[in-house]
Simulated scan of single mutants.
Amino acid sequence: MPETFVDLGSVNAPSGVLVLGMAGWIDHWRELGQPLSERARAATSSGGSHLREWLCEAVAVLAADDRPLRVRASTSPSPFDEEPTIATLEISLGLPWPETADRSVPVRLGDLPVDRCGMVIGDAAGLDVWTRMDDEPADGLADVAYWGRYENDAYAQFGGERIAQYGFDGPHGWLDLPLAEAAARAAELTAWRDRLHGKGLMVSIDKHTDFHRFRRAGWHHPLHVGEIEVGGCQVLGIEWDQGDHSIRHRGERDAGQVYPVTLEADEAGEMVMRWTIPPYDFDGEDK
């Protein structure tokens, strides 16, 4: 039975090199000696390759630099909650399949684990400036959220709005606050909790880093996919449900939970990059 694909959006690659990588480690490449863009450019001398150093992993491929590149996915049910999760990720590269190459034989580029922090698809040079969780936000803004046993009491005292996430009522809080105001609100909540309860209320400040922005952009997408701009480039981020990750992908590479990335030809004879995650084997749990 043929796979049914849904559109996730598009990315662009003005540098001519596209990367699929682990969101939790994208910013670490530059700390390991060479920026991601330099490593990716060297890895694509033969069309594409897998990159790995320390805990950082990505696959880099050549891509058209003058057009949007469509990203699609097929899905399979999660063993965690039976909701659809990505089974095959397909990225159009906008380049013709080489005439001398056999279109029926996929070219394996390597494999990748599913990062519990998410995955990122974007231009290699654009991702050089990716901001991590603890970096300062370019727009000077942050989001504050609170939840827990005493959330209703805190709401009566401090207010805030319901922040809907992934089809559910999320925590209370405030979006798009100036950083100083966000810190002051969080400090008020924490002091109130410590004075009256000691525990029972969680408070978070999420600065508008690229890491937080892609997660926030996916709050209302059924597959947790968000589109943002990074380094002047259009980037897609994919966040995994943590329950699903703990069942399907736990242990990541150390546990052999890695999945193949290939170059293939689509129906029109153009190159696509595919990342294939097999459906969960329920029968295997009984063996």
Score class of each variant (00 low, 15 high):
Ala217Pro: 10
His208Ser: 05
His221Met: 04
His245Ser: 08
Gly226Ala: 10
Tyr146Val: 02
Gln242Tyr: 14
Ser76Gly: 08
Ser246Cys: 12
Met119Asn: 11
Leu112Ala: 09
Arg274Pro: 13
Ala187Tyr: 04
Asp281Lys: 02
Asp139Ile: 03
Glu239Arg: 03
Ile277Leu: 15
Glu161Gln: 12
Asp283Val: 04
Glu53Tyr: 08
Val120Glu: 14
Val107Pro: 07
Ala183Gln: 15
Ala125Met: 12
Ala124Thr: 06
Asp134Cys: 11
Pro260Arg: 01
Ala154Lys: 00
Gly198Val: 05
Ser45Cys: 07
Gly33Trp: 03
Ser37Asn: 04
Asp115Leu: 02
Gly218Asn: 02
Ile26Gln: 02
Phe80Gln: 01
Thr100Val: 09
Arg195Val: 03
Gly33Asp: 04
Ile26Leu: 06
Gly160Ser: 01
Ile86Arg: 01
Trp275His: 11
Val235Asp: 12
Phe214Met: 06
His50Lys: 04
Asp194Lys: 00
Pro68Glu: 15
Gly231Phe: 07
Asp254Met: 09
Pro178Arg: 03
Cys56Leu: 05
His172Asn: 07
Arg103Asn: 10
Arg216Gln: 08
His28Cys: 07
Ile86His: 04
Glu227Gln: 14
Gly237Ile: 00
Trp29Asp: 01
Trp192Val: 03
Glu267Ser: 15
Gly24Trp: 05
Gly251Ala: 09
Asp135Met: 09
Glu90Asn: 08
Leu112Gln: 06
Tyr166Ala: 11
Asp286Trp: 13
Val61Met: 12
Glu31Val: 00
Gly167Glu: 06
Leu89Asn: 12
Ile228Pro: 07
Met273Ile: 08
Phe168Asp: 14
Trp275Asn: 10
Gly269Val: 07
Pro222Thr: 01
Leu18Thr: 04
Glu57Phe: 06
Pro278Gly: 07
Leu8Met: 08
Asp169Cys: 09
His208Glu: 08
Ala217Ile: 03
Val107Leu: 13
Trp192Phe: 02
Asp66Asn: 15
Thr190Lys: 11
Glu239Ser: 14
Asp128Met: 02
Asn152Gly: 13
Asp266Gly: 13
Pro14Gln: 06
Leu36Val: 00
Glu90Val: 02
Asp66His: 15
Glu90Arg: 12
Ile238Arg: 04
Asp65Glu: 15
Trp147Lys: 05
Leu36Trp: 05
Glu57Leu: 10
Gly198Tyr: 11
Gly200Glu: 09
Leu236Ser: 08
Ser49Cys: 12
Gly110Cys: 09
Asp169Tyr: 14
Ala154Trp: 00
Ile277Trp: 11
Ala217Gln: 01
Glu3Arg: 01
Val105Asp: 14
Arg132Pro: 08
Gly284Thr: 01
Pro77Cys: 05
Val61Trp: 13
Gly243Trp: 02
Glu99Ser: 15
Trp275Glu: 13
Ala191Pro: 11
Asp7Pro: 08
Val258Asn: 01
Asp115Cys: 05
Trp147Met: 04
Arg103Lys: 15
Leu69Phe: 15
Pro84Trp: 11
Gly159Pro: 05
Leu127Ile: 09
Arg116Asp: 13
Ala87Ile: 02
Leu32Ile: 00
Leu93Gln: 09
